[in-house]
């Protein structure tokens, strides 16, 4: 009977030690290397000054062809209709830029610089 009691005590001791060991192992702290890379930000550039009013001004609405030339053109046409209804003194020009959304269109930017007062460019997503 005494031997059985000793065996049970020994088993309990082993179980407790295993539990402690496992707990210590799981809570052991390790150091690992960082896969992320510092990301330098770009220098800040100020926006151009805003207009006092849009009355008598020319606003270009430029579709960048995202999703195809017909994807968002209707949005700009609807914007033009809104201007006509609500701010008829604003001259609105709707344009598609040349090439895909990834291509530059210096001719259009030049035109806007010469003839326009403001531009809204989109739609992307």
């Amino acid at each position: 009977m005494k031997r059985i009691f000793m065996s049970v005590r020994l088993l309990l001791l082993v179980a407790v030690l295993a539990l402690i060991s496992n707990t210590l192992y799981c809570s052991e702290k390790i150091t690992v290397m960082n896969p992320a890379i510092a990301n330098p930000m770009v220098d800040r550039v100020a926006l151009t000054e805003r207009l006092d009013s849009l009355d008598g001004k020319t606003v270009y609405l430029v579709d960048i062809n995202w999703g195809g030339p017909d994807a968002a053109y209707g949005v700009f046409e609807e914007m033009k209709i809104w201007f006509n209804e609500n701010m008829p003194k604003v001259n609105v020009v709707v344009k598609r830029k040349a090439g895909s959304y990834m291509a530059d269109d210096p001719a259009l930017w030049k035109e806007i610089g010469e003839k326009g007062n403001a531009a809204l460019i989109g739609v992307s997503g």
Binding site: N34, A38, D43, R44, V45
Partner: peptide, 23 residues
């Protein structure tokens, strides 16, 4: 919006992460 100038310093990414448990 009027500010023009150098970018703020990036968030540093230390070579090692703070020590912690595997879990």
């Amino acid at each position: 919006e009027k500010y023009t100038g150098p970018a703020p310093a990036p968030t540093p990414e230390p070579r090692f992460l703070p020590p912690d448990t595997e879990e």
